[in-house]
Each structure stands twice: as C-alpha cells, then as structure tokens.
C-alpha cells in the first residue's frame, strides 16, 4: 500500500533536515511514541502504542535512515513487531525542496502489515496508516512552523477547512428538503 503527502514549511531546508534527524523531535512527532533512542547515527529503536481498527498494540520499531543525501533526502525504513498483533514494515522516501516560501517536504511511503493486523484490520489499515503518517509529518511541520500547511489534494488530508463547511451546509439543506418532501 502506498501513501504520500506534501507539506509547505516556512523554515530553511537545513532546519527541517536537522529536525528529521533529531531523535527528540521524531519522538515528539510519532503519534503514540513512548520511547525512542538512537542506536547509531542512522539507526533508532522506538516503542509506539498504536491502534489500527480493533487492534491496539505496542509496536517495537526499528528505524533506519538510508540513502542519506543531506540535506535533500533520505529513506526512512521501519520495521515494527507487535507480538500477537502481527507486524508492520515499510519505508518512506522523504524529500526536501527549497522554495520561496521555505521548504517543501514531500514523502512517498510504502508499507505492508501482517498477522492479526492484516487479518482483522486490513480494510482499516490504509486509513489508519495515512492518519499516522499525516500526524507525523503534520506535527513535524508545525513544530518547526506553526503556520505550516499541507499542500496538494490527497484523500487522507484535511486540506482546508472551507470545503468541509460547505459540505455540511449542503448536507443540512438536503436533509431539510427531504424532510419537507416526506412531510408533505
């Protein structure tokens, strides 16, 4: 399964790069992260509590940084084991591009799950993982720049607030219309 996203951050590329390599920052940004320690310059071990559908488990995760091209890009490779709940593994290609507004962070992640996670959560995994990835990169962006925005259309993204309001208004009108028709 593949997911991707982009964030516009009003910080220099170097600052974003530093953050992406800072265990403390990563710990802050990984949702449900209980611990994260650096094993070497390119390896980390983390414990993460996460829920996917009905499966809630503690994931023992090994992260490694590969294809390092500071400060442009790296590949974050992770493997999580959650005992009886199964496992997840995947990688994310993270790219930083300098632009007039600061830095454009984009990621393309590919992952798969196994064991109970796949068995009872497969139809929920994509949504849950998109949310986890979004939370991670979203928090990271906002840590660096409280005004960071998610850019590009993506079905998992929260985008801007306006369309949702319009959707709600349209829905309410529709309900009223149906109600009116039924009562006639």
């Amino acid at each position: 399964m593949e997911i991707k996203g982009e964030y516009q951050i009003r910080s220099s590329r170097e600052t974003v790069w530093q953050a992406l390599n800072d265990p403390e920052m990563l710990k802050k940004c990984i949702p449900g992260c209980e611990s994260l320690e650096k094993i070497s310059d390119t390896e980390m071990a983390a414990t993460v509590m996460a829920s996917i559908g009905p499966v809630r488990a503690r994931f023992n995760t090994k992260l490694s940084l590969q294809n390092l091209k500071p400060p442009e890009s790296y590949t974050l490779v992770g493997e999580s084991k959650a005992g009886a709940a199964g496992f997840g593994r995947g990688s994310a290609d993270v790219t930083l591009i300098e632009n007039d507004d600061g830095t454009l962070l984009s990621y393309v992640a590919d992952f798969r799950v196994g064991g109970k996670l796949a068995q009872v959560g497969s139809r929920l995994v994509l949504g849950a993982t998109k949310k986890i990835a979004d939370d991670f990169f979203g928090t990271l962006s906002r840590e660096l720049d409280p005004g960071a925005t998610r850019v590009g259309a993506d079905d998992a993204g929260d985008g801007t607030v306006t369309p949702r309001i319009w959707l709600a208004v349209a829905g309410a009108v529709l309900v009223l219309l149906i109600w009116w028709f039924l009562l006639r």
């Binding site: 798969r112 799950v113 196994g114 064991g115 109970k116 796949a118 068995q119 009872v120 497969s122 139809r123």
Partner: peptide, 14 residues
Amino acid sequence: YDDSGQLLTGSMMD
C-alpha cells in the same frame, strides 16, 4: 489471501 499470504478475510467483518 493477499499476495504475501496474509489472510484478508480473517474476521466476521470481512
């Protein structure tokens, strides 16, 4: 099963 042998219909939901 998915291509990697994971059972996708492993609950009453699926």
